[in-house]
Design a protein around this nucleic acid. Sequence first.
DNA 1: TTGATTTGGAAGTGAGCACTCTCTAAATGC
DNA 2: GCATTTAGAGAGTGCTCACTTCCAAATCAA
Lengths: 205, 205
Amino acid sequence: MVTTTHASEPRGPGRPREFALDEALDKAIGVFSELGYHATSLGKLTAAMGIAEGSLYKAFRDKRAVFLAAFERYLTLRSEQAVRELASARTGRDKVRAMLAAYAEHSHGKVGRRGCLVVGSAVDLASSDPDMAKRVANVLAGHEKRLVEFIRQGQADGSISPGIDAAITGRLLLCVVQGMRVVGKTGRSREEMTSLIDNALKVLD
Amino acid sequence: MVTTTHASEPRGPGRPREFALDEALDKAIGVFSELGYHATSLGKLTAAMGIAEGSLYKAFRDKRAVFLAAFERYLTLRSEQAVRELASARTGRDKVRAMLAAYAEHSHGKVGRRGCLVVGSAVDLASSDPDMAKRVANVLAGHEKRLVEFIRQGQADGSISPGIDAAITGRLLLCVVQGMRVVGKTGRSREEMTSLIDNALKVLD
DNA sequence: TTGATTTGGAAGTGAGCACTCTCTAAATGC
DNA sequence: GCATTTAGAGAGTGCTCACTTCCAAATCAA
């Protein structure tokens, strides 16, 4: 089977890997998101990924390396999805709205209960793993920067009031979307989350 | 010394407890908030609380019971503090502002990095401990209800626009404050957090 | 004082953890 | 086809975990 992200690798010697790395990582994302890093034992991890412990340690140095790979893949997937969902948005305001809508969709029902891997990392690992803390901080800073850019763009295209402070408002909206992820962990409906969007957009006026 | 919350207990027979329960719980709140439930070992817990394992198990059934007691005390302390900080607020708008300000004060610097025990519980225990999940959901629902009441009060006293939907706006503000706690874990300055307050209040117009 | 009762504290215990070893299977290259 | 290389899988390993046990110390009721 396909071994890594690229289908046609320049196959070397040795027995080929029997499982798809990315698919296994997708399962890992699920367990880590649901239980957090510390509560996820290797038994649960291998059971979810569908591979034996030995095989997992052939592919990754240790548990932390698995988490790191899952974390990076999570970011890639979410980023790709964001690009898709923002494609149709033209004005800066539409882009902000699309971003809020994307978070609303991820913050209700089963997926909402599962939670966000970034938020989970921030809570579970930030104090014990300085490197992970830095990564999480970078991700949130990136989201913040993107929101600020959307706001500036909106101020340029006229869809957002020129009177507001883009930096502060961007940070505020970062809090809104991260907060949606936390509140979504307590089991909320789609309507409860999507109804927030238009109200949140009032900070752009 | 004093053993429990009430100084003058009707002392029974036996050797008196040598440590103050509430003070020990305050230390427990610190460790649990910083590391989360699963990453907090009994060794770290007893070291922080300043008591031996045997003594801890005399006072609590198990680790979960310690966490539960710390959780309840955390809620009590925060609630008492909230009452104090809201005392001077007269209008509904002022009460909402005071609540945002309180969260901003807890979401920067060292305390911000330590994180919120409720948010931590939501992320670390919600999926593995249904009872804790329910407790967290109840706490957030309580905060939401309070915010909604403040908004309704503000609409009655004229400090908040009567045109807005109190239920939705209250939920939105809940996301804002919980999000501040998440973002605050990545190390933010006081100014970064307090500057959000006035911008967030625009959703009341 | 004496006996009952409870705490303090350290040593001990079984379970579960992350991780490794070993052996077999399956691929490539000469 | 044989040597080499890598993957798969399960048994094994040492360690840490939550939790218990045991005994000395401290207090109260008689």
